[in-house]
Each structure stands twice: as structure tokens, then as C-alpha cells.
């Protein structure tokens, strides 16, 4: 399935790509009201070539955010609703015997798309989850002994509902680690909610949004984001933060070196989204909770009630060099 892409109208070149990114951010802001920092984080996540896990209660716009992201970035988009009877083949596709041709033909599953929304990812069995997770890690799927590459770029946006406990299969730590960021959207404030109620239907607005970037432009943006300057003191800062997560008695398992790398990549992408001349301490602090929240294992006796509080506690303890 190919979405219409108006390549000739899309901007080319660095500055144009930047402008497109700002436009995309603005467009997303009209759909998801009052969530500018989460939009920036989601964009940063995609620019850092990371997969995104959105964790929140139903009805807070998780799916809307994922769809809007695909739409404004001009990415092909598929959605899989994860259920407990979902099979791996439902994700990656099956080989079907064609009588007329006398041979097997591969029917690609919904995963062969550029942005896939895995809705309620924790509802499926671990077997189905692992099919998705292999794709996230390897950017390829194996069916009937054949390895098939996934399209470029490839993003997974997964959502899960933290309140549901019955009939769910929570993702283990090793699989959570494959998501670069975990976001929480939260309730909108009163004014935004009012506008949401009185304003136009978001679903139809989504249809009216034009893509402002192409997959090629997105790849150029990813490259630029990775090239953002990270100064020496902030490398120290990141090391100090990581050390603090490992030494704090409130945390059983701190950030791994992969976690540290994720922090660097995300901070750079965030600085890029925010038009900073280099990575600022604010960029690191902005992405820290999204990066570290699902990677830390809090100690049993910690007084901090949520991952966000725990991350804030770490930030409050480390001086910025």
C-alpha cells in the first residue's frame, strides 16, 4: 500500500529540511493540543532512529499521535491491534499457495510499512510480541526461512495501557530496552480540552494534513541530528547521571552503556528539534525521563512512586558541569 507522496512539492536541502521539521511540529501541535514537549520528544525519538513506546490511559491521544506522526512525515502507516490471539503471522505475513501459478507467494504482513502502530502491545502473547521485537532490532523479518528487509525508514510506535493488568503480558526489561523512549501523554489542560471539545473533529483534521517531509528528507534530518555538537562538560554530565543511576540506593538496576548511548542520541535529536546550537543541559534533562524511565529498576524500598519521580530525583542530585 502506497500513500500519495508529492515528492516534487517537498523541500530539499538542509535548511528546507529544517523548515519542514518545524512545520511538522507545528502541524502535530494543531492535532495534539498542549503537548508540545511530548511532540518534541516523539520527533526527537524518530530523528534518533528510535522506536517509541507511548504508555497512558485510553483516550489520551496515543493513536492519534502515532497517526499524525506518520502523516506529517509522509511515512507509510499501518496499525496492528494487539490481542491475545494475535499470531506472529498476523504481523509479518504468510506464504500462500497460488493454485494458478503452482507456487507459494509471500503475502507481506502489516509490518512492511515505514511507521507501524502496535496498539496495546502488552495484550498479545510473548510469541507475537517477539515477532515485532525482532523486526525492531534487526530491521528485517524471517518468514519460511527467507529474510526480508523492512522498508527504510522503519519505526515502531507501540502503545500500552498501564492500568490494565488482567490478560496482559508486560514486556520484559530486555524488550523494553529496545524502545528508545517511553512517553506519557497525560491529560490536557482545561483550555486545550475545551478547544478539543468545541473544535473540529481531529480525525478529519488528520485527513487534511499534508505531508511536510519525505522519507528521504527524514533521513537527511536524522543525519543532521546525529551531527549536533555535544560539549565536553555535557559528556561529563551524562556520565555523572549514569553513575548516579548505578549508585543510588533507590535504584536496583541503573542505566547500561546502551542506555547512555540512547541518552546521547536522544539529547542530540532533541537539541536539533529545539534549534539549539549544541546539546544544552535542558536537552539532556528533557529526554532523561523518557530514556531512563523504562530502563531503571527501582529498589523495592524506594520512596519514589513513579519512574518520572525517580528520574527527577536523579536529575536533582547531579550538578551540571
Amino acid at each position: 500500500m502506497q500513500r500519495r507522496t508529492t515528492l516534487e512539492t517537498l523541500p530539499v536541502g538542509k535548511d528546507a529540511a529544517r523548515a519542514a521539521l518545524d512545520q511538522a511540529r507545528k502541524a502535530l501541535g494543531t492535532i495534539i493540543l498542549g503537548k508540545d514537549s511530548q511532540i518534541a520528544l516523539a520527533l526527537a525519538c524518530l530523528l534518533a532512529r528510535g522506536h517509541l513506546l507511548i504508555e497512558d490511559l485510553p483516550g489520551l491521544g496515543k493513536t492519534m499521535l502515532a497517526q499524525a506522526l506518520a502523516r506529517v512525515l509522509g511515512l507509510s502507516f499501518r496499525r496492528i491491534q494487539f490481542t491475545s490471539d494475535l499470531l506472529p503471522a498476523d504481523i509479518v505475513g504468510v506464504s500462500v499457495f497460488r493454485q494458478e501459478k503452482g507456487e507459494f507467494e509471500f503475502q507481506p504482513g502489516p509490518i512492511f510499512t515505514q511507521l507501524i502502530l502496535a496498539d496495546e502491545v502488552n495484550r498479545a502473547t510473548p510469541k507475537a510480541q517477539s515477532a515485532l521485537l525482532e523486526a525492531m532490532e534487526e530491521y528485517q523479518v524471517s518468514v519460511d526461512g527467507n529474510t526480508r528487509l523492512l522498508p527504510e525508514p522503519f519505526f515502531v510506535v507501540a502503545t500500552q495501557n498501564p492500568a490494565d493488568q488482567i490478560g496482559t503480558f508486560p514486556l520484559p526489561e530486555s524488550q523494553l530496552d529496545r524502545f528508545l523512549m517511553r512517553l506519557e501523554l497525560g491529560y490536557p489542560n482545561e483550555d486545550d480540552e475545551r478547544e478539543l471539545i468545541t473544535g473540529a473533529d481531529r480525525r478529519s483534521m488528520l485527513q487534511d494534513i499534508d505531508a511536510v517531509a519525505s522519507p528521504e528528507a527524514l533521513q537527511a534530518l536524522q543525519k543532521s541530528a546525529a551531527g549536533i555538537h555535544m560539549s565536553e562538560p555535557l559528556v561529563d554530565y551524562i556520565q555523572a547521571l549514569v553513575r548516579q543511576t548505578r549508585e543510588s540506593p533507590d535504584i536496583d538496576i541503573g542505566l547500561s552503556p546502551r542506555g547512555a548511548l540512547a541518552l546521547v542520541a536522544a539529547a542530540k535529536a532533541h537539541a536539533f528539534v529545539e534549534h539549539h546550537s549544541g546539546v544544552y543541559p535542558d536537552d539532556i534533562q528533557a529526554v532523561f525521563s523518557a530514556i531512563a524511565g523504562h530502563r531503571l529498576k527501582p529498589a523495592a524500598n524506594t520512596i519514589y512512586r513513579s519512574a518520572a519521580e525517580l528520574c527527577q530525583h536523579v536529575l536533582d542530585f547531579v550538578a551540571i558541569p
Binding site: 562538560p233 544544552y280 535542558d282 534533562q285 536533582d316 547531579v318 550538578a319 551540571i320
Partner: peptide, 30 residues
Amino acid sequence: PPARDRAAILYERFVNKAGIELLTGETPAV
């Protein structure tokens, strides 16, 4: 000691002049 480059020294003057304590982990923007 961590390199106290010129910018950091200048910023410290500003913090002193402001007369409020810079908290641990507080970014310049905050």
C-alpha cells in the same frame, strides 16, 4: 578540576550577582 572555561566563570558572576543559589541539577534555562 573540571575545566572552568571562560564562559563558566562569566556565568558564575551572573549567578552571584543574581543573589539566588543555583540548585543542584538546575539548568540555566530554569
